[in-house]
Design a protein around this nucleic acid. Sequence first.
RNA 1: AGGGGUGUCGCCAAGUGGUAAGGCACCGGAUUUUGAUUCCGGCAUCCGUUGGUUCGAAUCCAGCCACCCCUGCCA
Length: 557
Amino acid sequence: MSSEHAPVSHFIRNIVEADLASGKHKSIVTRFPPEPNGYLHVGHAKSICLNFGLAQDYAGRCNLRFDDTNPEKESEEYANSIQEDVRWLGFQWAGEVRWASDYFEALYGYAVELIEKGLAYVCELTPEETREYRGSLNAPGRNSPYRERGVAENRDLFARMRAGEFPDGSRVLRAKIDMASPNINLRDPVIYRIRRAHHIRTGDAWCIYPMYDYTHCISDALEGITHSLCTLEFEDHRPLYDWVLDNISIGCHPQQIEFSRLELQYAVTSKRKLLQLVNEKRVSGWDDPRMPTIQGMRRRGYTPEGIREFARRIGISKSDNVVDMSVLEGCIREDLETRAPRVMAVIQPVKVVLSNFEPGVTSSREAGFHPNHPEFGSREVPISREIWIEADDFAENPPPGWQRLVPGGEVRLRYSYVIRCDEVVKDGDGNIVELRCSLDPNTLGKNPEGRKVKGVIHWLSAEHALPAEIRLYDRLFTVPEPDADKDVDFHQYLNPASLTVVNGWVEAAVRDAAPETRYQFERLGYFCADRREHQPGEKLVFNRAVTLKDSWAKEQG
RNA sequence: AGGGGUGUCGCCAAGUGGUAAGGCACCGGAUUUUGAUUCCGGCAUCCGUUGGUUCGAAUCCAGCCACCCCUGCCA
């Protein structure tokens, strides 16, 4: 288990610390408030780590609250996966899961309070008229003709909206603020709409649903949230957040603080676009290992610890940012480096016949599962007359600097003998069929005498190796910012080679590995037994989570 | 009649008047039966820009410039 790194200072921590120091709060309460309308992605992971992490670090609490105010888009499937993802990332929310819908009755009551204070009114403008009356970025809006209705009439109308007397979309409840505000969110925002839709929690109990801006601040206050953290696009909504809480009888006023969303190179992090990729079958599903979803990263083989470390490294700020893939990959490698057992696998096999192999004389060696962790144990790495080596590890015409096998050259078989390539056997088309090699019997566990063999390659005894389906993943997009240009469809940057499936060989030691077991296949990368299709002892399926760093490949360009 | 934000190394990001942290990436070099890991070393005379205040400014002031967000009965 890798040790957690020290927290990194950022402006929200500074605010929390100042509030704790000044006594403004005895302890903090944060919340992670997803809408159950899609799967969580790496950007949500940042928010989860922030909110739950803060609660952890300052001995506070963090709630999980579903913002379920739009029944048309929400589903139980999403709500369940979100809970699973939060837990998988290693966090536990305080108490039960909360739902904004738990507060529908209270929300209704506060709306009545606003009406009674003359601060909300029922408006009968059509959606088109409402838009027209709102004005534009450069021009003030105009008051709705329904704006000056009396309190009693508004109260009656709102009650009848709830009672289902009016058709969907025919009326809304609006906050009476300022149609001339330069902040469009304050131009008498709609706070309730009529929508006859089946809600995942409340069923058909309601036909009116509160809007986000109205719901979120009250939900926060009801839960005693101290710091309500959200992304930058809600900065303009803060005056409304504050307006609602300032105008109802509620004894709590959380502070909303905004930070910038995470953008990741070679990925898209917009629920809409991710949903599109799923619906259009560009990927196999929300958990396709190429997706930047938490489910996808999990299936790929990324670890919760690695993702948490990633969140820590990228920091929290208010500036727009596009984080290098190398940061995420580095975190995953670093975590897996210390905890993944090493075994060998060959993904692009070339047969090698060891001409001087002698049964009963040529012996095997034991190999530890991890160079720095003897406690991981070891296994026998058997050898036989025929072995598989990686096609990339042999070259007839090697480039300068090559350390692997060449005709007439020597190379070390990892945990075994040094071999020399004596003959290259080809078919009629000139393709290599097999390599004839001889081993130096005096090199098992020791260096050859009188010469140095620099190259070490991985290999597998053909007699003992197990077949495995191996899925090699590459970035989903061909450019770092596939959705940077609004006029260019991001689909055109889909990487056609983002998935390569090969039939390779693995060591018998992984035969019974449970799904989600991670290994380092030496010299190839970190791999994870597929969560869904890998069957221990039956059908072996491994996903490549991330390659190893490869300074040779880099040097080759 | 517009409003709200952001600009510090290729990418993140500390710093909040006392003379530019850290991470990733990158470049050297050492060790290595993973061209991995590990280990050493290098990597912003400069903080969007122009002026100003000050003994002293990335930090304060003014003006410019660039980019992001906002006109859902979405969140």
